[in-house]
Design a protein around this nucleic acid. Structure first.
Lengths: 255, 255
DNA sequence: CCGCCACCCTGACCAAAGTCAAGGGGCCGC
DNA sequence: GCGGCCCCTTGACTTTGGTCAGGGTGGCGG
């Protein structure tokens, strides 16, 4: 608790006396985590020190499963960054059933829109897997925004890039068959432009399936079919025999 | 040419002496156009006067089909708003074929990301249907951004809302069957919460189909099936017998 | 060792969307 | 009126993804 880098050790400093790891459940830690937070769409491209200052003004929360983070209608004076665990955003239907609108996994952020534009959260949020969150207050955020003229500009820029990614995903969902989406997902995991590549799936097949918009059974079948195109998968490691050939398969089949 | 509202008559002023319609190929004009431009994700929520000032510093371009607007690598010192016509963004593959990355139709904007972050366009842009564009320079944009502290904030907010729309569209594409997407599209066209509604399709079925990510034949079949749920379509006008019933159909079928 | 569980694969079946082909109706210029 | 075109619909057929059920493997605790 006497860690000099409060409230959050993005990059644990030498003098840190906090007992144990500061954020025990992290998949990433230290520099890797810092890199991830900095790669958040909202922060992508920001100076390290600006981010550090913002983090310094923010709070780290350790939340247990089944905690209600906030409910719909609550004042939205901050937004959240998911460092670890999972948070679901949901609405309650008139008849009492809940409808999950979105599930946030590390590392992502949510609630910016509510905070920035509406002032109140439109949905309920509940922790569905023990989580570590950063709560960023509106005041601190605006301070950051105004601390430097370029910050707002940078944020706009990074949101634009975010938008580009999202709309390209929409295009893919609309015009590509599932197997191509899977193939492109795999291709995106490697920097190799040709030859064979060995990549590790970042999460299990269930999540990968939902990521590309299909059921896990279909994913199995797709991976089976991709074997003919030189994609060998074993556990969560995948071997692409010929990156370029696979890439050409995708583009030419896509018309 | 002596129109007082240069370079663009968003809302033609009484004293306008410009001969004929200022932007002849517009589908929308006057207040309707202004509304559309103001609803651009980037500008959504901005004050009318701020927008007017920005437009005043910008240039309207009338471009002919097959014009190359810019090529990849060109300095990105402005971005564009498509008022009319169509623009395609494409890349050239090593073997000389072109791969279309995106097609922009009215009213939308492109190139913000390139302008804001990279400084150079990553793709080629070509007019594929006689177009009217607004070219917004970086300088003018930044001036707007700095003219008022709240502008940057507002733009961030509206981009966040934009993001929400996009990610909700992604969710829909992934977890809803086509007929539900069609139904929700129709429901989104009316404000009615119950009873019967009469809506007009904003574009032809071909485009509507691609909007929801299916072929036009499938759209026909979907609309045929929706007839059983009290959706009568004739030409581009659609009658929803019971808005609430249809909405319930959607949510309960979606689990 | 066993049972349990999480994760993954597979096969059989069904429903639904894509594809290909044909045709209807409205609009337009000749 | 006629032919052509555009937009849309329909039908027959194919392909593919969803669903359901079964089963395999590996880790873990009893």
């Amino acid at each position: 608790m006497s860690c000099p880098c409060r409230p959050l050790c993005l990059v644990p400093k030498p003098g840190c006396t906090r007992p144990g790891t500061p954020l025990p459940r992290h998949r990433a830690s230290g520099p890797a985590l810092a890199r991830q937070v900095m790669a958040l769409p909202l922060f992508d491209g920001l100076d390290h020190e600006v981010l550090e200052r913002l983090m310094g003004d923010s709070t780290a929360l350790a939340c247990d499963r089944r905690t209600l983070l906030f409910s719909a209608g609550a004042a939205a004076d901050s937004f959240y960054i998911v460092l670890d665990g999972q948070v679901k955003l949901f609405a309650l239907t008139p008849d009492g059933r809940e409808s999950i609108v979105e599930v946030f996994t590390p590392v992502s952020s949510f609630g910016e829109a509510a905070m920035l534009s509406m002032g109140a959260f439109p949905l309920h949020a509940e922790i569905i897997e023990d989580a570590t969150l950063i709560k960023v207050g509106r005041r601190a955020f605006i301070n950051t925004l105004q601390s430097d003229r370029s910050v707002g500009y940078r944020m706009l820029a990074s949101l634009c890039r975010w938008h580009q990614r999202l709309s390209s995903e929409i295009r893919h969902l609309k015009e590509q068959p599932p197997w191509q989406r899977v193939a492109e997902f795999l291709l995106a995991l490697t920097d190799a432009r040709e030859g064979t590549a060995l990549v590790a799936l970042p999460f299990n097949k269930e999540i990968l399936a939902s990521r590309v918009g299909i059921r896990r059974e279909s994913l199995s079948r797709v991976l089976a079919r991709l074997r003919d195109m030189g994609v060998r998968t074993e556990g969560n490691s995948v071997r692409i025999d010929d990156v370029d050939a696979l890439r050409r398969h995708c583009t030419e089949a896509g018309q």
